[in-house]
Amino acid sequence: MAHAPAVAHGGAHVTSTGTENRKLLMWIFLGSECLFFGSLIATYLVFKHQVIERGIGPFPIDVTIDGKVEHGIFDIPLTSTSTFVLLMSSVTMVLAVYGAHQHRLKMMKLGLLSTMLLGLVFLGFQVYEFRTFGHEGLNLTTNMFGATFFLLTGFHGTHVGVGVLYLGSLLAASFRRNGLGRETGEHVEIAGLYWHFVDIVWIVIFTVLYLIP
């Protein structure tokens, strides 16, 4: 006799292991992303020092070449502000998840909207930073520091952009009739996992790229 799949509270489908399969899939996907970003960070670290040693600027940090100080290109206060913005977006995201689980739809919608807006502000900071670097002569082809820096932060920015679209689709669905029904909590929670992951990747990038000389 076939058994119907177990259904947890809120309509989430659970497996025989007691886990929700879509949520488990998201965790496995995020695990694979660790490999992806880990490789990009390692590549950046290897080539950053090559640029400093070879003396081909612009440089990430202040460097003295032939007695002359070449100032680093990073604007730490600006990046700290964008880091703060992304951290706060994690708070609004977790409040959206809370609202979805508690069936407080207004709280959920406000949380999703705030998270999207904060994500867009973060992207605005990133575009500004990229443009500034471009004006200072650093682009993808300038040197290996430029190539690996833009590759890493660009891919992270793309993830933020995808996250904004993901949250936007949930927000739009929440306004539609019959949209986000019994499984609302699970849908928003899974989107929240993705968003928080983007945040923790930035926590690592901020420290390794910007703060550690």
Binding site: G18, L24, G31, S32, C34, G38, A42
Partner: peptide
């Protein structure tokens, strides 16, 4: 559920080792 932690921790460990 602990399985989520195990799934993520295993991948994260692998990621750190690859790095």
């Amino acid at each position: 559920h602990r399985l989520y932690t195990q799934a993520f921790a295993a991948s994260l460990t692998l990621g750190v080792l690859v790095t």
